[in-house]
Amino acid sequence: MDAKVRELSYSQAVQEAMAIALESDPRVFLMGEDIGVYGGAFQVTGDLVERFGPERVIDMPISELGGAGVAVGAAVTGMRPIFEFQFSDFATLAMEQIVNQAAKMRFMLGGEVSVPLVMRFPAGSGTGAAAQHSQSLEAWLAHVPGLKVIQPATPHDAKGMLLAALEDPDPVMIFEHKLLYKMKGAVPEGHYTVPIGKADIARPGKDATIVATSIMVHKALEAAAALAGEGIDLEVIDLRTIRPIDRETVIESVKKTSRLLCVYEAVKTLGIGAEISAMIAESEAFDYLDAPIVRLGGADSPIPYNPDLEKAAVPQVPDIIASARALVQGRR
């Protein structure tokens, strides 16, 4: 029997996933700053505190490092915490617990514990919040063995991947682009999961592959729709998970299209696009390439406040159109 599908916003989808988890699993609880009566800085937890009470929707003090450690400690002792960073930038305050403790505890203890921890990071630019509230730091965490890092791009995946993360015995870091929170999309009712580690071919095509993450998936789809009018047929892969990367889907796509463009909002240098490019260069898909790999990523600068500069600091649809067209037509 197919579940009923409704239109929900991304933030509603995340909230629905958390509500399902809170209802069905007594081990699940939420922790974060102002996630109770305030409803979260981006209203993602909304009224969950009224439905599940302050002991399961915990407003913590502004203590990111300590709070993250509390979530780690709870996870290794039988609970399933969902920890919300108010902004992903504030993870910098908690890196010790994420990187040294959560990621390594199972390994250091020879498999004697698991750390079933879910952390949510509202990320990205475009809100005018300037340099300390607009970063995309997912590659930092994806560099750490022991963590899984996902970037759902649609309301459907936001719900399904959060529910998958809760079933995962290892720490899962979820980067949610703030500009996606209001985006609407089809979301089935009830419980379902979208697997971690599996990319989605958001648009099949034959002339070039665009590997995009998070909000860039939508920009890439917009660019692909525009270029379709010029007879250019782009394949858009929504990577969805950046650790572990779905090598097979990306490699197969590049073997088919012979061209690769990586699009991501995080700083281009040493980012996910570098990893994807190197992965293709090292794989059998390299022999299929008809053109050099192209990366579009964030500028090598902090995110500026001025709205025009802010837009210019990350890839926009016209940038993707220009790069994809040049890639397919063989001009750089």
């Binding site: 509390v70 979530a71 780690v72 400690g73 996870a75 290794v76 002792t77 039988g78 609970m79 915490p81």
Partner: peptide, 9 residues
């Protein structure tokens, strides 16, 4: 903090 988390559990 891990001890505090275990105590919360």
């Amino acid at each position: 903090p891990i001890a505090v988390g275990a105590a919360l559990s």
